[in-house]
Design a protein around this nucleic acid. Structure first.
Lengths: 214, 214
DNA sequence: TAGATTGTTAATCGATTAACAATC
DNA sequence: TAGATTGTTAATCGATTAACAATC
């Protein structure tokens, strides 16, 4: 165990992947796995698997490997999946609505508790149990409800404004779907989903493959 | 210029970010930028900016910096944005529909030309100009239309099946929104959007900040 | 010309891989 | 016990940063 040292971002990014593969194994009824097997499934070396876990402690048994369910729970705990998180979605456009309807996040402890927009046609509509409210009610809502995460799915021109608003209300987590780089204080975490970036990367590799092909 | 050498994935991932920031500068009417300024905006060092570009050639002018518009176009060309790409979306659930309606991809040259599902309630409906068709018409559609990219937004249980289908039809690019790791031949490019992974990462950093705070 | 900033090589830093003693 | 596989240190590899000559 190496406590105190800052764990590299790249290791953190792999934790959900481990969690995902362990969940699969668990669902397949497999109860035991070695770093070699897990690495093979994930396309990384067994060394990397063990080195990654080593950052957090020791979860295995020499000569045996890892108990799938136990390891899964350990990683879940590191990720904080045991802490329930409530989210508000700001921007009830197509993407915002799709996320609000995407029930899969709930099994990891993330629940949508509010959806906000400025479009009068949308306000009052319901998405699953949640009513779409006007953005000018966010302050009131956050003061009356526990809100951990703000999901920002507004057009890019409003992104900064919305981020500043929710930061001002004390929200410490932002899931940013706009292409804007948000400047946030040290105690606010931001995760970005840059759809266009991902698509452009795909385009690059397609072009590359085509050119490499003789 | 370093031709022949394989350019690191991490550099490729930064190209769309450069492109995005250069587009911003361009829209703000700024015509010239130095590696220092661009790096500061993006939160990286000027060395990294120059080193990244060095992989592809030389786009600047000593003592001056870079012409924003020219550099933007160069990077766009490296990314292949000048090549129009057509996409089909498989899985017209909330996420699939949201992506089909997300017109922003078009300005980068990516157009949705077909949407497929198996739900009879959806088939025949229109999303922008595109009709939702039954999945069993994909083969026919792909034989009659140029399709570059398959966007997979089906439930995870169908992911492999759909991927194999489109690969069999000769599609060389997959934009995968399922949490399944797809096994594809060498000449097929895959880009993943793992929403849950991103959310879990956010959760980790929120927890981390909370604990670090004294 | 003098000042600025690139392109490019070299140095440093950090992440991945290898190796192996510990031990189940 | 013998075999397997971890935890952990050391070696290697690759990416980032620093430095500076070239040159606009």
């Amino acid at each position: 165990m190496e406590q105190g040292k800052k764990i590299p971002d790249i290791v953190i990014k792999r934790l959900p992947i481990y969690y995902r593969f362990l969940t699969n194994l668990h669902q397949m009824g497999i109860s035991r796995v070695s770093s070699t097997d897990l690495g093979k499934k994930m396309g990384i070396t067994s060394s990397q698997v063990r080195q990654d876990f080593f950052n957090f402690g020791s979860f295995g048994l020499q000569g045996y490997g890892y108990d799938v369910d136990q390891l899964r729970q350990e990683i879940g705990a590191i990720l904080g999946l045991d802490i329930p998180r409530s989210m508000i979605i700001i921007g009830a456009g197509h993407l915002g609505q799709a996320l609000a309807r995407h029930s899969a996040f709930e099994k990891d402890g993330y629940t949508v508790v509010g959806v906000f927009d400025i479009n009068p046609h949308l306000i009052g509509e319901n998405i699953r149990d949640v009513e779409i409210m006007h953005v000018n009610r966010i302050t009131e809502f956050v003061s009356q409800n526990k809100v951990d995460i703000a999901v920002i799915t507004v057009p890019r021109t409003y992104a900064k404004e919305v981020a500043d608003l929710v930061i001002g209300l004390g929200i410490k987590g932002i899931w940013n779907f706009t292409s804007v780089k948000l400047a946030v204080p040290d105690d606010v975490a931001v995760e970005n989903i840059h759809l266009s970036d991902s698509l452009m990367t795909l385009g690059y590799y397609m072009k590359e493959m085509h050119e490499t092909k003789k």
